[in-house]
């Protein structure tokens, strides 16, 4: 039997952070395994719909960034068409964007690199500030040989790449945003979106998995472990299934 420790008191601040909902109450486990129906938590599936984090001003910039990090080619879409920006939009609007669960007590002191990031900003705040700084940098034509008055998305691909190299190397001054750190985060997030299960909004039609030959969420390779140096023949599947399994769906 598993029954919550019944106490109706107002939650204390200290405990609040740890409580995720009705099921997330302290419990007593005795006599049998505490299994209860309908307590599983399947992953939230990203649905198409309005942008939840990015503003209309930010979108062209982040989409262009995604396409320079993962450029389209004749066989595989780039970051934008693969859905990496949709992925990032939902991530930034959710727990990741608000740094949920991380240690956020001060003081915030910059230490040695080996001591890890010490920013008081959440990823959502960082993206907001960085995208604005990138746009401003471009419009002011601050890079050498860069045109004035253009948004990042309007630059030629080579000029965009030059900007990215500047961020990567930390040579672009982004008024208050740590360019290098932001670039590391951006790179990670876009590539995460490209390779994560398509239920999160990126890797559309499992394009990234098809590109490399990863079969996805298949769970059983017993017949294959001893078959050496042979190409695995089956197409990938997602946690959400595969289009030809559910032909009537969207």
């Amino acid at each position: 039997m598993s029954d919550g420790i019944r106490r109706r008191d107002v939650l204390t601040g200290a405990a609040l952070a740890l409580v995720g909902g009705a099921a997330a109450r302290a419990g007593v486990i005795k006599g049998e395994l505490p299994w209860r129906p309908d307590t599983a938590s399947p992953p939230p599936r990203v649905e198409p719909g309005p942008w939840q984090f990015f503003t209309p001003e930010e979108l062209p910039t982040i989409e262009a960034l995604a396409d320079r990090i993962i450029p389209p080619d004749s066989q595989t879409p780039g970051g934008k068409d693969a859905g990496c920006v949709v992925f990032l939009d939902r991530q930034l609007a959710g727990a990741y964007g608000s740094a949920e669960g991380l240690y956020e007590r001060g003081p915030f002191i910059q230490g040695a690199e080996q001591q890890g990031p010490q920013s008081s900003k959440t990823p959502a705040q960082t993206y907001r500030a960085a995208l604005q700084a990138i746009d401003q940098y471009c419009r002011e034509g601050r890079g050498s040989g860069m045109p004035r008055g253009k948004h990042f998305a309007e630059l030629a691909p080579e000029q965009q790449d030059e900007m990215l190299h500047g961020l990567e190397g930390g040579t672009v001054d982004m008024s208050g945003v740590d360019a290098k750190q932001f670039f590391t985060t951006l790179l990670k997030d876009i590539q995460d979106g490209f390779f994560a299960d398509p239920i999160y909004g990126g890797n559309r039609d499992m394009c990234a998995w098809k590109m490399i030959g990863f079969p996805g969420a298949r769970y059983d390779y017993r017949d294959w472990v001893s078959r050496h140096n042979e190409r695995y023949p089956l197409p990938p599947v997602s946690i959400g299934g595969r289009a030809d399994w559910t032909p009537r769906q969207r």
């Binding site: 008191d9 200290a14 405990a15 409580v19 109450r25």
Partner: peptide, 9 residues
């Protein structure tokens, strides 16, 4: 031992 549950009790 002393412990704290999710309600703060």
């Amino acid at each position: 031992v002393t412990f704290v549950d999710t309600s703060g009790q």
